[in-house]
Design a protein around this nucleic acid. Structure first.
Lengths: 246, 246
DNA sequence: TAGTGGTCTAGACCACAGG
DNA sequence: CTGTGGTCTAGACCACTAG
């Protein structure tokens, strides 16, 4: 036989079972038999359906997870990933506005808030001296009910007196503007793929060591002063980053 | 620099073995017993050392891989990840300059180059009509010998006559400037975590379905015309993205 | 309490890489 | 050819979630 597509697929002949499972499940999703946030059948059911073991089945689920096609909630099961949110980290638009503009339902939950001695990383970001005290607000944010983001905000307290007594479930952006007359100016951000730290995986109820997108934002106000920084841990399959240069 | 060092004690009794292995191996790396691009002992050796099975051992290796601490080359073994490259996608600086500024050794390899009928996605990016013909250049790029990037460049041929006869192993940025008087202007980029497509995993010799960072860049010249776009697939643990707003 | 995912065992065969 | 990683089998117990 001459050059046909079979030769192209040699590397697929490895991993026969896993590939077949991946194709079958993504077929269900593409054909709408399963839609956003639907739960997949139990692992034992699937492994029987595909006449294989749970180990192999979980290998396939792991690959679909890496592609961002499905996600899991710890000890609850596997679910179909909803479409990604388009996120421009340079933009001032806040989380709730961003989600709503894209037809999604946002929600915010405050885990805790207080004044702490800042870790050295934070002092460096905020250009504060060692052992400075800062406000720390930890929140999780949901889209359509699904917890997608764990974030720690560190605020230079000089600019935000008594902010801890305000309602922190709404947008900090609005609070800054309405109560303190402070608006976001220049932003600097860093981003790297890694895994969730323990505090985040607990709060989001994802498996320990799930992959995550870690984004650091350092925010200045309209006068160029560094006012706060955010450490954001996003579920791996949540975001589609888009940035346009000025 | 990585906040995500292995110092997290993992939750209580779950994942006892895997956690112990992860801590041991990251200990070796932090204490310099293993350094950048060193190969780890064989899986069978490690699984015996930790008195466990290869399945469990591979679970641990997979977690270290997700953290970006180690990487694998298909059927060759596991290696210690070198430090990440700092990458600003909005910057005009080209790959070789970027790598050298950070004390690394860059290399480029052209896989193929030719004139093709553009896929519709590409026409959309370049704002060309359906079934346009474009130049396509596929390359892989290395840092310190390790293949880290698979990239497809799509060029609007109107601006680059006869470019396929030039030396394409060097910087396109320089070729554009020196031969065509075209310099990069505004850039727009999108980024999302996913897995390598087959062409990329083959070229980079990474496992099929390894996680990857997919970056699309749409480049304009000094007159604001869209001149080309890049589809870049980076190894997951290669980059530390940093962007500063103007 | 029942059923789920999370973890782990103890093997096995294959395809490919390197000597 | 030898050793490697890649894949797969057929079970098991535990921890947690949901009803």
């Amino acid at each position: 036989m001459l050059h046909n597509s079979a030769s192209f697929c040699t590397s697929l002949s490895r991993q026969k079972t896993v590939t077949a499972i991946c194709q079958a499940i993504s077929g269900w999703i593409e054909q709408g038999e399963l839609t956003h946030n639907d739960r997949l059948p139990a692992e034992r059911v699937l492994s029987e359906q595909f006449t294989t073991t749970r180990i192999t089945l979980r290998e396939a689920l792991g690959q679909l997870e890496a592609q961002g096609m499905i996600y899991r909630e710890v000890r609850r099961g596997w679910f179909v990933s909803p479409p990604r949110i388009i996120y421009n980290p340079l933009q001032r638009s806040h989380f709730h506005a961003m989600a709503r503009e894209q037809g999604r339902k946002p929600a915010t939950e405050v885990l805790d808030a207080g004044e702490i001695v800042a870790p050295e990383v934070i002092n460096a970001h905020l250009t504060l001296p060692s052992r400075s005290r800062v406000y720390c607000i930890r929140r999780i944010r949901r889209i359509d009910g699904r917890a997608v983001l764990y974030v720690e905000h560190y605020l230079n307290p000089e600019y935000f007196p008594a902010i801890l007594h305000e309602d922190l479930t709404s947008s900090l952006t609005e609070l800054y503007a309405n109560t303190y007359g402070i608006r976001y100016g220049k932003v600097r951000f860093a981003m790297l793929p890694t895994t969730f730290p323990l505090a985040a995986s607990r709060a989001l109820k994802v498996a320990d060591n799930s992959p995550a997108l870690f984004i650091t934002r350092i925010n200045r106000d309209q006068y160029g002063r560094i006012i706060d920084c955010d450490l954001e841990y996003w579920r791996y399959d949540t975001l589609h980053i888009m940035v346009e240069a000025e």
